[in-house]
Amino acid sequence: MIDSPRTAVSNPPTQPLASNLGPGDVVRRSATADLPPPGRQLTEVAKLIDVSKCIGCKACQSACIEWNDTHPGVGENVGIYENPHDLTENMFTLMRFTEWVNPETDSLEWLIRKDGCMHCADPGCLKACPAPGAIVQYSNGIVDFIHENCIGCGYCVKGCPFNIPRISKADHRSYKCTLCSDRVAVGQGPACAKACPTQAIVFGTKEDMKKHAAGRIADLKSRGYANAGLYDPPGVGGTHVMYVLHHADKPHIYANLPDDPKISPLVQSWKGVTKYVGIAAMGFMAVGSMIHGVFARANRVSHEDEAHAEQLVENPAKAPPPPPEERV
């Protein structure tokens, strides 16, 4: 059996399969410093979303809801194409629609981007997470939330450069796209890719997906999209969900896709220098106090002090007077 599936279109075998993705394949685990190295390196997988082939049918959303058994509530039409209006704990992927007028051609372009977790090689959510094992990264590149370890603090929301995780108000746990890790574990591609009627979403090894993207980009360039390109942002170490964009020089026109995503320096310093300097400062205070307490003489009230106080209360004339500059 091959370690990672090569496609999302094949049908599953009829006989039961053991999971081929488990705790032994974890390469990063949130709030865990010394993780044993994995016994094997899985072939890296990736989902490639070709924005130019997307027709906005939302079959990917339906497939996602069905496979993950989520239950988004019935929405309300407020005159936008997005349904639901945003990612939620019950909607891990969302078609975002932008009506964009190309200034060069003066023609309207309807940009449709399937939003969802990008499965960063350097995941900001995992860096921010305080709960051991609530977020893991497998050697095939999938970043997954282990809900039983999640404490619902929302730090992943602050860590994510793409605004993806959503905290459930019902169970106070964080949810996002799993890249169908449970399907990948048994040799299947993600449900969205399987359902996509135009093959705008394809799935395979990261290398294969880059090659496939190169062919698509060459095709788009031949059709006049001179800036067509692959979105695999290096600021987060590359991603395991990539886009083919016809205007790769300006990702932000696709419903605010970040031009150069990276983990915020605020998050980096919170999880880096603040933590180390903070622990050192608190430790210095605590240890310093203890050393002073052991070695320095305690500040004790003397019998003389008590006698002076008694004199002051009984007969102020006998007590030592205030120093001259303080005398009233």
């Binding site: 929302g154 605004n163 998050v267 603040t274 933590k275 903070g278 400062a281």
Partner: peptide, 16 residues
């Protein structure tokens, strides 16, 4: 989210 990032950093420094 950018406001929350500032807040979480400020909160941790003030807590220390």
């Amino acid at each position: 989210i950018p406001q929350m990032r500032v807040a979480v950093l400020v909160h941790s420094i003030a807590a220390v």
